[in-house]
Design a protein around this nucleic acid. Structure first.
Lengths: 203, 203
DNA sequence: GAGCATCATATCACTTCGATATATCGACGC
DNA sequence: GCGTCGATATATCGAAGTGATATGATGCTC
């Protein structure tokens, strides 16, 4: 799942590891701070698989140069520091490759992985990269899962074996799932009205 | 966190690994199915540290016997099968030790660990093992964390850089956090009215 | 009594986490 | 100019969790 998140961020623009961490929260709504101990190995893995590649440290233009020599790197760093104000020493900026784009769309659309709350939210945050049909499938699948979960927690909320605290947890879980369901239904109705609009305009 | 959950279940009664998995969902409201690949190693760890101990396979009474010999185990199993209808072969039933109880309360009350949603819910589900003062501290701490998170996601929901899907995720996250906050405020007001009742009665 | 779902433990490779180490840069005081 | 503090940035380690898979017993049904 982290792979999808990172690739998703790189679809928009290049990033370095440290930045990815903050972007996960700010742009993709990931609630927990993902540790560097997962981000850096993930980037290394993605690079190994040819899905991302390191680029000359930052700077939108003026880049190019440097085929890897230490002197070259240093030079470009110095020039960066002089110019745009960016270019902290250690930065390793990554760019997504064409294969990375393909793999990203495949992972995002993959119907075999079962979503928990985090991965579902992530997918919705990246839903613009899905076709309308895939979006609807994603939403309806999650809807089904949540309906099952709702039955479970409602049962727990009424279970007299549990003490008041445990029942409160269950009952709050139920309300929380209900809220999720309302959200999904909203999203679904938007998808549907969009496709209607499209159908009407197509006439 | 898993340790606390397992110990919490064992506070009530003895369990075996397979059962713990279902109880986590049913009694403690853990939403994801915790894998056996974490439960069994966790039990082994807890046993190694002397916090739990294996008991003669199940059966409320008739137990005792068996100091570990293979023949003894088999015999007690056969008798179990004949009697209560319980006693599947492989079952390893664990009981919490006195040290385990102490450690459980210490872990549950530990103020240094920062709660995410899962561990917070877990703690609330086990809150009857906390003192009223510790319960209030737990709730207020979480409340603070959520207020900060709320500010963050509200900002994300208004961020025009994000597309409609990402903003929708942020906005739903905000509603979700608001619901959590209402829940916590409910729990806090219950704690307070309980302590008032207590104070009034004490007069 | 044969077949099948469920119960139950165990282990594997791979990921992720949390802590820690290391180094640079910018700002601030003095 | 000089130290130092906080934010930026990468890297690595051990411990823990995941998902898949293997293995086998037990009970249910036909």
């Amino acid at each position: 799942m982290l792979d999808v998140a990172i690739l998703g961020l790189l679809m928009e623009r290049d990033h370095h590891g440290y930045e990815i961490r903050s972007q996960l929260r700010e742009r993709l709504g990931v609630s927990a701070n993902v540790s560097f101990g997962s981000i850096y190995p993930a980037l290394a893995r993605l690079e190994r698989h040819g899905l991302v590649e390191a680029v000359a440290p930052a700077a939108p233009r003026a880049a190019a140069v440097s085929t890897g020599s230490l002197a070259g790197e240093r030079a470009s760093l110095r020039s960066l520091r002089g110019s745009a104000g960016l270019g902290r020493r250690g930065r390793k900026v990554y760019r997504i490759t064409e294969r990375g784009r393909q793999e990203f769309r495949a992972l995002l659309a993959d119907p075999t992985t079962v979503d928990d709350g985090r991965s579902f939210s992530l997918r919705v945050a990246l839903a613009r990269y899905l076709t309308p049909a895939l979006r609807v499938r994603l939403l309806e699948r999650r809807r089904q899962d949540l309906l099952e979960r709702l039955a479970e927690v409602r049962q727990g909320a009424d279970n007299p074996d549990l003490d008041a605290y445990a029942r409160s947890v269950m009952s709050h879980a139920a309300h929380s799932v209900e809220l999720d369901l309302e959200w999904i239904d909203d999203l679904l109705s938007i998808e549907r009205s969009d496709s209607e609009t499209f159908a009407r305009e197509a006439k």
